[in-house]
Structures are given as C-alpha cells and as structure tokens.
Nucleic acid binder design. Structure first.
Length: 152
DNA sequence: GCCAACGTTGGC
DNA sequence: GCCAACGTTGGC
C-alpha cells in the first residue's frame, strides 16, 4: 500500500530543480530521530511532496517518489562530512536515508500561507504551530486535496 | 536577524 | 530520571 509523505529541503542546498536534473538522489543528512523513523517506514513507490523550507516563499514545490527504501546514511561515517556522527558505526548505524526519484515540478509553489489558510488542512502536521519535522506523513485525503488545490 | 518552539546533552 | 543549558529549525 502506498503511503504519502512530505520532505523538507532548503532549496539553496537541494531543490526540486536539483532533483529534476539528477532524476534520482539519496536523501541524506537527516539527523532527527522522528524523521529517521518515518524514513524507515517508507516503501518503494511511496509518494512524496517536495517542500522548500527556509526560503521565500516556503511551500510545496512538486512531487517525488521513494525509489529505494531506508539504508544506512554513509555520510554519518565520513569524518569530513558536515553530517558526521561519531556515535554512528558500521555495525550499528544510527542514521538512515532513502533514495527519492523526481516525478513532477509544479508550475508554482503552493505556499505555506495558502496551506494554512485552508481549514480543511488545519489538522496537517505541517501547518501546526512549532512543527519542525523535516520528514512527516501525509494522509491520502490530504495528498489528494492538495493535488486538487494546485490545479485550481 | 530575531526568536519561538522544539530536541539534545550532560551534570547531578 | 530530572531539568537547565544549549543547539537547531524555520517562519517571519
């Protein structure tokens, strides 16, 4: 069964255009346990909203899909990497990543402000105050509703 | 750049 | 196990 997710990235570091160009990319550098646990639940073919964060405007930029399920994030073993974590070992990897594949770039960003304005989406994790999760689940209803919003 | 809201760390 | 101090995220 397909599950639905939202993944945040700062477009200065990695944007929907980067993914479009590369077609497929590892989603490395997640260093939050809740986000990691969600990635471990991902299955190949799961659908992903690609969210641009810490930019203007912040919002959903397009869609992607999971092309490889969770495997150890090797950047946690690389002492020269920004994402290095000495507590993550080969025998007992602490951090994981998935591969995502480009699906679609939307004609415009569906902004956080627009998402917040919609009462139907009031229960979304994303629009809740103080939510900083970089990987979060989306319900099927939310996925379909947001997809329709875009086409208006 | 500010700062609220979290998450993590480490002393006790 | 508590909790203060510190670090990070991310909208504004």
């Amino acid at each position: 069964m397909t599950h639905y997710w939202l993944m945040k990235s700062e477009p200065d570091a990695f944007s929907i255009d980067d993914l479009k160009r590369l077609k497929k990319s590892p989603w490395d550098g997640v260093r939050n346990y809740q986000a990691r646990n969600f990635m471990k639940e991902m299955k190949e073919g799961d659908k992903v909203f690609f969210y641009h964060s810490s930019c203007s405007p912040s919002g959903i930029a397009g869609t992607a899909k999971v092309s490889k399920k969770a495997y150890p994030d090797h950047t946690s073993w690389d002492a020269s990497s920004y994402y290095f974590d000495p507590k993550s070992t080969q025998d007992n990897p602490r951090w994981f990543m998935v591969d995502v594949e480009f699906v679609e770039k939307w004609p415009s960003i569906l902004t956080l402000a627009e998402l917040k304005q919609d009462s139907v989406l009031a229960d979304m994790l994303l629009t809740k105050k103080g939510n900083r999760l970089s990987v979060m689940p989306i319900t099927k209803d939310e996925w379909e509703y947001i997809t329709v919003m875009l086409k208006k």
